[in-house]
Write a protein that binds this DNA or RNA. Structure first.
Lengths: 208, 208
DNA sequence: CAGTTACGCTACGACCCGTAGCGTAAGAAG
DNA sequence: CTTCTTACGCTACGGGTCGTAGCGTAACTG
């Protein structure tokens, strides 16, 4: 795959410096006032170097912010409720950070008109979050907290639904309603979600 | 309050033309490429006129998009489930439109660094949606589908939670996951939400 | 060594921003 | 009708960002 290209290799230090400078610039200036020239200056790099690696502001910021989502982990606290609550708090803490707060919605907005950008976001950010949902379900099934869904299509649909509910609620709470996600909110949300899951599954099993 | 100011009054036609031109420009160019000059040209108005009424792009777009949210209504279909499902579909249809799709997330992103803008969004967009939740709860209580919460604080918290869950899930589904909200999804979401509400309330009543 | 690729730097036209200045248009007050 | 006040259209401007081209140099390969 890598044909061992000749010539001067790209500087990995420059890559790291650029991404870090991008995050710093996001904190200081926010999305709208962030400029490629400013990032280049902060990173100690020529502006042209940025354009050799990223098509523009959108792609650069996605990559700069994506690594922050690697922090998200699903702890094993013994119960599905505790796991969900913990991951909700983690996700909320991530969204409280000024880098992500100002960048996430902006790139999503841009992605509505740019399919390539949408794919990039999906691969490097959304997929990581979705993985947590699948992981949590599997773990809960092993514990016997959730039944094993025989139909793969139904299972996938349910997972998508759960994912949109969790991520959507947390994002909406922190960015639109602009209120903090504290332990109390996380607990009440988790209760709502899991009770809904359980009751909905039970209702489907008995008919309706 | 209005001291009947003298002088030439502002043209209401210009106002309407500008807001409509803004929506048209959003459809054609999207948020990032929308410019004040383009809007002015489309509206047949001088650029300076725009700046005499709006501080900038953000405020203009919020006002231009806000009126679209007036379409949202809570139908009375006889049951809470049917009402929720209908309003979810309405909201989703609104978010499918290119004007709102590209603008809503962008202004929310900007609002993370601009408190005045956040208030403007809250007053002219979010409040309208939240009203539907309160209206739906009241109607369900009158039908006997939901118990009357005696504690006003708890009631308000629950309403906030429900609002973030509904709006967040629909927004996340349409804009982040970039998948359509069809009748099937709306039904499954409604079941999840209402079962969760019922089960959570029952659980709290019996202790825990 | 030559060949290839990345880098830093400069300069550039193009575009958009937001404002100032001016003459004119439209109502309100007398 | 005249005067006053405000809104409008238009032009022009300095300032900033964009994205690219061109060039000489640096780094690594065969």
């Amino acid at each position: 795959m890598e044909p061992a290209r000749s010539g001067r290799p790209r500087s990995a230090e420059a890559d790291a410096a650029i991404l870090e400078a991008t995050r710093a610039s996001l904190v200081d200036l926010g999305w709208s006032k962030l400029t490629m020239g400013d990032v280049a200056t902060r990173a100690g790099v020529a502006k042209t170097t940025l354009y050799r690696r990223w098509a523009g502001k959108n792609e650069l910021v996605v990559d700069a912010v994506a690594v922050l989502f690697d922090e998200l982990e699903l702890p094993d606290l013994g119960s599905l409720a505790a796991d969900v609550e913990a991951v909700v708090l983690q996700f909320a803490a991530l969204l409280e950070r000024p880098e992500t707060k100002t960048a996430l919605m902006a790139v999503v907005a841009e992605s509505t008109r740019d399919e390539a950008l949408r794919d990039r976001i999906r691969d490097s950010i959304v997929a990581r979050q979705k993985h947590l949902v699948l992981q949590g379900r599997e773990r809960a099934q092993r514990r016997g907290e959730l039944p094993t869904e025989p139909d793969a299509v139904v299972a996938a649909r349910t997972a998508d639904l759960i994912f949109d509910v969790i991520a959507g609620a947390v994002v909406h709470r922190t960015l639109v309603s602009a209120e903090t996600v504290d332990t109390d909110w996380a607990r009440r949300f988790t209760v709502l979600l899991l009770c809904g899951l359980g009751a909905a599954a039970a209702g489907r099993r008995t008919g309706t």
